[in-house]
Design a protein around this nucleic acid. Structure first.
Length: 482
RNA sequence: GGCGCCGUACCCAAGUGGUAAGGGGGAGGUCUGCAAAACCUUUAUUCACCGGUUCGAAUCCGGUCGGCGCCUCCA
């Protein structure tokens, strides 16, 4: 099936045509590891994971590269004098290197909890300084750079198509709208490739270079590392929408200036998670981590499910109510899976193993096709999720087929369905108190049979206090942990 | 000031020319000693507002109002 994606470059839906048949090569801008990722950051990585899984689902080989920015950069709003990494290191009494390792580890732990698969390559900026110096050298040879005030700049005036991605009209850009203009720049949009004169003193990470001892500008790392692992030209570049006007615009300029060739074919950007009053950010006070959601009683996959509810290109409203809705929905879905599993078992069907989709009935086929069509059309995951629900509720499809469909769809959605189907069922789950609970249930049912409801209710409330819920059904009494 | 996005039920949110997906929540019902679960039914004649194009518009065009993002090394 043809996958269509919205290309920021050109602002239109385009059929994905890889440079090399059957392979999707993509680069994703990763985190700057000076703090924990907040759930807004994580939304973007969930989106990238959905795209990755979509390619895999449709049979592509994926070469996915993500960088980790572990070189310090400026602190946030209004603070022009300090480096994020240095600030964080000082506050925590650690070296910048330790800070980077610590938060990178935390970041990937979060991704793992969210069922975000690891890219084929995760590369740290500090391991690729030589690649950056090399690339800057190519730019210098081609005359795109100038030295001023000790720093080496990229001259956007030499790159005619500057700003094409962001639809920037250089003549109309208001320089210094929010930040002081760097007097050394020839054009306001010029950016530093290599610093030797830091705006701040305590820069701990320094490397020798042809332009002096210093450290690289931010944008160059993505160009250098992506080209190192994916070649001078590759298929897709991913990131958050905030990167369109500056970071990605500059990446394109320096990459294409260095090679003289078109660089990336498809630019795909994820929109922000927003809270009441605006986007999530430290200054606004709404810094929520995955861990804090866990402490509030949510499963990480509840958050993933929540993310699937909105299209990647639209802002998603985060509220506790909507996260609750996602949590309940996911529980209901997994409960339904559990019942389908029991039904399939009663029918003597096996739930594991592959069923060729050719063997599916027409109804199941139609559901699968609807799901795949939604996913392939610019990753319409909300629609795909709706198709999942409809297929689960379709009684004309056998329980076994529905389980198979759910697992199949979970290859992309990754919301815990496969684990629910293939893992131990609730009944198999070991429980230290199981014997006592079973015993009490037996006693209660004897009491019910002799119409001693007072005793029966006593047992119900006793177990409820211990967190055990009883459900009387036609086939006996089931219990579960509440 | 420039660039871009968005406004769909109580909430989240698909749908972008053919007569409103899905989830959560609410309401009613079946079942049940009770309770829960499950199941069934129901919940926008209408898509911020005003014009226009069209046989037909939530979808296209123009305007108004409102929200948001970016223009800084925020995902």
């Amino acid at each position: 099936m043809k996958i269509r994606l919205y290309n920021t470059l050109g602002r239109e839906l385009q059929a994905f045509e890889p440079l090399e048949a059957g392979i999707a090569r993509m680069y994703a801008c990763g985190p700057t590891v000076y703090n924990y990722a907040h759930i807004g950051n994580l939304r973007t990585y969930v989106f990238e994971d959905l795209l990755r899984r979509t390619f895999l689902y449709f049979g592509y080989k994926v070469e996915h590269v993500m960088n980790v920015t572990d070189v310090g950069h400026l602190t946030d709003d209004g603070d022009e004098g300090e480096d994020k990494m240095i600030k964080s290191a000082r506050e925590q009494g650690k070296s910048v290197w330790d800070i980077a390792d610590f938060f990178a580890e935390a970041f990937f732990r979060d991704l793992d909890k969210l069922n975000v698969e690891m890219p084929e390559v995760v590369c740290k900026a500090t391991d690729h300084i030589a690649d950056m110096i090399n690339l800057i050298g190519r730019l210098e040879e081609r005359g795109y750079t100038y030295l001023a005030g000790g720093n080496l700049y990229f001259d956007v005036g030499k790159f005619q198509r500057y700003g094409e991605l962001a639809l920037l009209d250089r003549a109309k850009l208001q320089a210094g709208a929010r930040v002081e203009v760097d007097e050394n720049k020839r054009n306001p949009q010029d950016f530093v490739l290599w610093f030797t004169k830091s705006k701040f003193d305590q820069q701990a990470m320094l490397w020798d270079s042809p332009w002096g001892r210093g450290y690289p500008g931010w944008h160059i790392e993505c160009s250098a590392m992506s080209m190192r692992y994916l070649g001078d030209q590759f298929d897709i570049h991913l990131g958050g929408v905030d990167h369109i006007p500056v970071h990605h615009t500059n990446e394109i300029a320096q990459s294409e200036a260095a090679t003289g060739k078109p660089w990336v074919r498809y630019w795909v950007h994820g929109e922000f998670l927003v809270m009441t009053g605006g986007k999530m950010s430290k200054s606004a006070g709404g810094f929520i981590t995955l861990e804090s959601l866990e402490q509030m009683g949510y499963h990480p996959l509840d958050y993933r499910y929540f993310c699937l509810g909105g299209h990647y290109r639209t802002q998603l409203q985060f509220t506790e109510d909507s996260l609750n809705a996602a949590q309940t929905a996911r529980r209901n879905l997994l409960d339904r899976i559990e019942r389908l599993r029991a039904e399939a078992a009663r029918n003597g069907a096996t739930t594991s193993g592959e069923t060729a989709s050719d063997d599916l009935g027409d109804g199941a086929q139609a559901h699968l096709r609807a799901f795949e069509t939604a996913v392939a059309e610019d990753l319409n995951i909300p629609k795909a999720l709706a198709e999942l629900w409809q297929s689960m509720k379709d009684d004309s499809v056998t329980a076994q087929e529905r389980l198979w469909l759910a697992m199949r769809m979970d290859r992309i959605l990754a919301i815990g369905i496969t684990a629910a189907v293939e893992g131990p069922s609730e009944a198999d789950a070991p429980d230290d108190d199981a014997a006592e609970i079973e015993h009490l249930i037996t006693e209660r049912n004897e009491a019910r049979n002799s119409r001693n409801f007072a005793r029966a209710d006593e047992i119900r409330s006793y177990l409820k206090e211990k967190g055990v819920l009883l459900e009387d059904g036609p086939e006996g009494t089931h219990w579960k942990r509440g």
